[in-house]
Amino acid sequence: MGDDAFSKQFLETIAVSYTVASALITDPDDRVLLVKPHYRDDWLFVGGMVDKGESPHEGCAREIKEEIGLALPVGDLLLVDFIPQVPQIVDEPLTMYLFDGGVLDDPSRIRLQEEELADFGFFDLDEAAERAAYFNRPRIALGLEARRTGRAVYEPFTR
């Protein structure tokens, strides 16, 4: 077997996943910012798929700018999550990064990407979890805790 064939055969055994980067943004009252896409019934963190050639924190910064029109600094990594599959999105695994997007003092600065997003809101922990997509529900409390303690969390998704 030639080197190219061996390399191809070897690479076919390596796990591959899509990358998602999102931001945990709160208001001064520690309420979590979620956005409501037109195409979903549930609410999401600000963020999305990382483009080829981007690092997760670069993708997060781009998504913040695109979705809410703000150039916020992307802070510390709060959480890494592995989801084996989200059939409504992709049939491959997702590796999800949640970064600290900081505290937004003035929500009137938000300019929603109207083509994709219908609404936004700041919600306390319980209401945020109630509105959030099932795969984001545990991330809300874990992200807030990671921000409070300064210790990132690895949380493989379980239903």
Rank of each mutant, 00 (worst) to 15 (best):
P84A: 14
H57Y: 08
E66T: 07
D42L: 02
K36S: 13
G59W: 03
H57T: 01
I64G: 00
H57N: 12
E54I: 13
K65D: 04
I68G: 02
E58W: 01
I83W: 01
K65A: 12
Y39D: 15
R40H: 14
F82I: 10
V46E: 08
P73W: 01
D81N: 15
A61R: 12
P84K: 13
G53P: 04
W43G: 02
P56K: 02
L78N: 10
L34C: 02
Y39C: 13
L33C: 13
D81F: 00
G59S: 02
E67Q: 15
L78H: 09
G48L: 10
D81R: 12
E63K: 11
L78W: 12
I64N: 00
G47H: 03
Y39S: 15
C60R: 10
M49R: 13
M49T: 11
K36D: 12
I68A: 00
M49G: 06
R40F: 08
V50Q: 01
V50W: 03
L72F: 02
H57C: 05
G75W: 07
L33N: 06
F45V: 07
V50S: 02
L72E: 05
F45L: 01
W43A: 08
E66S: 05
S55M: 13
G75L: 09
L44I: 13
L34G: 10
S55A: 13
V35Q: 07
D51K: 07
G59C: 09
D81L: 01
K52S: 13
E66N: 15
E66I: 09
Y39T: 14
S55Y: 11
P56R: 08
G53Q: 05
L34W: 06
